[in-house]
Design a protein around this nucleic acid. Sequence first.
DNA 1: TTTTTTGATATGTCTAGCCATAATGAATTT
DNA 2: AAATTCATTATGGCTAGACATATCAAAAAA
Lengths: 285, 285
Amino acid sequence: MLMRGTSCCAVKKFTPTKPDTQSADAAPPKGNRRNRHRLRAAVSKEKKRPLHEIILRDIESHILSGDWPPGQALPFETELAETYNCSRMTVSKALNQLVQAGLIERRRRAGSRVAQPRAQSAVLAIPEIENEVRSMGMSYGYVLLSRARRKTRKADICCFAASPRMTVLELDCLHLAGGLPFCLENRLINLAAAPLAASESFESVAPGPWLLEQVPWSNARHKIRAAAADARTALLLQIDEGAPCLVIERETSSGGSCITSVRLTYPGVRHELTASFTPTDNKVS
Amino acid sequence: MLMRGTSCCAVKKFTPTKPDTQSADAAPPKGNRRNRHRLRAAVSKEKKRPLHEIILRDIESHILSGDWPPGQALPFETELAETYNCSRMTVSKALNQLVQAGLIERRRRAGSRVAQPRAQSAVLAIPEIENEVRSMGMSYGYVLLSRARRKTRKADICCFAASPRMTVLELDCLHLAGGLPFCLENRLINLAAAPLAASESFESVAPGPWLLEQVPWSNARHKIRAAAADARTALLLQIDEGAPCLVIERETSSGGSCITSVRLTYPGVRHELTASFTPTDNKVS
DNA sequence: TTTTTTGATATGTCTAGCCATAATGAATTT
DNA sequence: AAATTCATTATGGCTAGACATATCAAAAAA
């Protein structure tokens, strides 16, 4: 109310490099908008990208280059709106995405500032084994080693160990790549949560893909560690006993109750997990 | 243009459970808005949470519960706007957050639908080693083993190996927890990118924290694998030669040029990486 | 029959405002 | 001096539209 003139949007912004050709002072909103569009296209050669993304990338580059160090206060929304000649909402959209990416922090009266670097984090992709094998250009094979129904034990992977005894289906399977052992899978399925598993043989379909079809969605917890191959593992994976293996354990739960847990054992020499992380564009590759 | 009546916002929405008390047909926008606010507070007991988040959680629960299976088409934005008695933009915000979370997919003419479950992914937190040790309630120690300036070699971690020979600072250090070896660090620092490193002894400060202060921000690539300890590693970590180790390699680059690479070797038996992942609320714990 | 055109439509982007809310600092009261 | 009030201010949330654009399907043209 006080600052009517500069309130939400800069109604008129004179870019130094290219003065507005049509300087009709009280131009109707439509005409003004056209002008802005043309001006934007002329100034930033990138015609296709939406404005909020241009703003995001621009600010991101200021931060990534060290131009704006951690703790640095960003211009206010209204100022940025004027700078980019757009509405406050568009700026806000860009800034909120930067908050999500962890690059900036915002507080209501205090404004926005560049965040302090946090703990290193990474988005880790743990693909379906079949896809993983095929994407390496190798043939995929699957063998069911054992299938048994039993009660949970203390030694079981965490979520099953914690809860009182429940009936689970235990599967041991071997995934092959190019005819050679690729990964050993030890799987527990909560029969209370996925009763259909009891009538599935799992001889031709691996439990992972099967479960994906059954259980709607999931929250997952992973543990990754290195371990020495025991005698049985060594035999099955055709490696030496004591050889290092990469072990990935995953518990999948849905709404508090554990659905399944799995332990994947990869020969250490043959397998590698990769993860990449960029602040804004954090895609799982 | 055709569907004027139902275009953007449902101007009037009669909730079955609570018919609108003020049924002034052409109520001014302001009064109407007040009504909506009161109505919303009465219907959904959650007063504090913003509407777009309520919508997000609501749709999320439909998907997570399996009520809306993968491939299921969601109601259109306009329909949801009517359902929740809000504007299309608010619905759009919620839906776009669900896209970011990977729960739904949207296409322009086709509408929105529940996404097929993708490759398992997880947000992996790789903390600063000192914090990691201290958070376990153990004392932290740091020892610099060697410090040398040299040219890059073919055998160096990828990004350095790829580029033509450049001058790097190579550091070997040992991190201790409770007086025992915890992690072995092999670090390369690009002296062109971080020239100040040349005049830092790294005898009292580990290169990780030091670099965080120097380099503004970073994109990182990680590789995780299991490997057997070689003679030197075994000696330094006080484990047996050939014992399994968890090896984490990280390359940090900024704007295309590699800043630093690091190989962290943890004794397999003593260390575990954990990662958690929930579709929408994916926090690094 | 095949290709092209055309219209319909749902989302994508953006605007120019509105009011709410949290945080701050100054003025006022206790 | 301490506590309380109060105006200020920047972000948070939201609206009621507008136009843009991708895309699907049906009609028209080849």
